[in-house]
Write a protein that binds this DNA or RNA. Structure first.
Lengths: 225, 225
DNA sequence: GAATTGGCTTTTGTCTACAGTTTACCGAGC
DNA sequence: GCTCGGTAAACTGTAGACAAAAGCCAATTC
């Protein structure tokens, strides 16, 4: 057997360019989330293709995927439009997110090992110092990483995939809000870690639920403001 | 105004063929769920195209969508393969389904009107008589309709969309099981309706949770059998 | 003056063709 | 007899071209 003689990691998978549609997909998603492409905007295939230096086909395939994931609306014989979030939809999305994240917290409490908990604490520390430095982008990124890590510790791939989709869309809707919730968020994260470390499923669920619900509350206050 | 002079219904929407990719998508999904295309099977684009009488492009787009929804795995430069469910994944999928359905039940209890409850009872009656007649296909279909109706009453579109995906995959994995759970399932449905009618969110959640968990249990017993 | 109809432009939907990769098979060499 | 190298076939990835549908604007008619 050949593989026995190969040390792990010496073959770094020699990264290939990968399918164009993937890169187009990521490029478009980036443009949408950064609001370079604004909600309601008509996405013309030939324009995008020319702008990205590829043909229409990869663009089409990327748009298809963005459509199934809810980022663009694909009106037949008319083209693709960046999805416009409604208040109602945003609220429903948050409801679902709360549900998924809370379950993830419960599973994490049930399954997480000490290594995982250590990783969470590390992320938490990183996030807190980012808050202290006022590095907003890093705060947001670390926050996402923290939630992703909790998902990973939950050990449910299906759940993780769904939550990944939902989370990303939530972050898109709520970017203004996310930037406000600085330090308080990380205090709650600490409490979540404690619950997970204590293997207390019920408490982990509840802390996470309160955490995400807090986000929604902040959002609705924004309207009033 | 012209439309005033036109009786309703005389123009029956003049159903358009609709985009080819849609029909190809549905055709393939049908073939997969009915096991005409079996897990692990290599789907060759040109073959499918020829078989369906279209070109490769619509087939590709359909495969893309099936990929993002988890029905096929799209290995780069190698093609599409019908997804092979693992035991672990099936279990995780059921966990998620339980979660989503339970939440739907809670929301339905909170929001449903008397009309909705009547609709549920009607479906329930239909399902019970189907069981009595031994019409297995109708039982399965009515069961799906019942869950869909609960989702609809919950009034959360995002949740409904996610649950729709998950449910369909669960049904694919568990078709043998679903055919066994005949009458018992509908008894539980009755209890769910009662909880919803009573506006008892907690009880509705719990009944639905028990209901879907029961499905999982039946599945694992199948292994032992 | 307003509504409608006709043609024109733009954009999508589909098909065909070509290039790049991977896989499998077959033969030669050790 | 087994392994390695080369060759060929098949399939995917991408590009370009054509046809159909939708939207828009102007001309025309009541």
């Amino acid at each position: 057997m050949l593989s026995a003689g190969l040390p792990q990691g010496t073959v770094p998978k020699l990264e290939r360019p990968g399918p164009l549609r993937e890169r187009v997909y990521e490029a478009l998603l980036e443009l949408i989330t950064t609001r370079a492409l604004r909600p309601g905007q008509h996405l013309v295939e030939s324009e995008l293709a020319g702008h990205l230096g590829v043909s229409r086909q990869p663009v089409r395939e990327a748009l298809q995927r963005l459509n199934t994931e809810g980022w663009v609306d694909l009106r037949p014989a008319q083209g693709a439009f960046v999805h416009e979030p409604t208040e109602e939809e945003a609220d429903q999305l948050l409801t679902v997110r709360t549900l998924l994240e809370a379950e993830a917290a419960r599973l994490a409490a049930a399954n997480a090992g000490s290594a995982g908990i250590a990783a969470l604490e590390e992320l938490c520390t990183k996030g807190e110092s980012a808050v202290a430095d006022g590095d907003v982008d890093l705060v947001v990124a670390t926050n996402a990483a923290f939630h992703t890590k909790v998902m990973e510790l939950a050990g449910n791939v299906v759940l993780a995939e769904l939550a990944g989709q939902v989370d990303r869309r939530v972050r898109w809707y709520y970017t203004p809000v996310a930037r406000q919730r600085g330090m308080q968020s990380w205090i709650e994260h600490r409490r979540l870690i404690a619950a997970i470390a204590a293997r207390d499923e019920a408490r982990a669920t509840e802390v996470m639920r309160a955490h995400t619900e807090h986000t929604r509350k902040t959002y609705h206050e924004r309207e009033a403001g």
